[in-house]
């Protein structure tokens, strides 16, 4: 498996690796994937005034999965909820130069973003929004 320089860089120097307390105010948590599939991503956002001020991830998975979630946290920081909704897996594929066999890593990262946003909105609105 040949990894792009960007994947290797994120793997060696993961950005924003860690966790927020799930019940902390303004925190949304998304957990996607399954251990038996070989990847699980946990992505968390911290929101203030509709803007994502911080993001963290933890990932069990291959280098591309780690890089995809690391990159996602970088991109999320500073974005509004609405802007964050627009991050697409194809953007991640392009940025990290992922080979076809690793595209599912980017899909998982997009799912994790959506899940974290949905969790945040559920916590603040008291109801789950339509994520489509």
């Amino acid at each position: 498996m040949a990894y792009s320089d960007k994947v290797v860089d994120h793997f060696n120097n993961p950005r924003n690796m860690g966790s927020f307390k799930k019940d902390e105010e303004g925190v949304g948590t998304g957990m996607v994937g399954a251990p038996e599939c070989g990847d699980v991503m946990k992505l968390q956002i911290k929101v203030q005034n509709d803007t994502i001020v911080d993001a963290k991830f933890k990932t069990f998975g291959c280098g591309s999965a780690i890089a995809s979630s690391s990159l996602a946290t970088e991109w999320l920081k500073g974005k509004t909820i609405e802007e964050a909704q627009k991050i697409k897996n194809t953007d991640i594929v392009q940025e990290l130069n992922l080979p076809p066999v690793k595209i599912h890593c980017s899909v998982l990262a997009e799912d994790a973003i959506k899940a974290a946003l949905a969790d945040y909105q559920k916590k603040t609105d008291g109801q789950a929004p339509d994520t489509k």
């Binding site: 957990m31 251990p35 933890k58 069990f60």
Partner: peptide, 24 residues
């Protein structure tokens, strides 16, 4: 392991087998 959400959950005492994973 520091980076693994599974390790974190196991350390918190979560039984990973009892979690409803969204298989993909």
């Amino acid at each position: 392991r520091e980076m693994s959400p599974l390790y974190e959950m196991a350390k918190e005492g979560v039984d990973l087998k009892s979690v409803q994973w969204a298989a993909h």
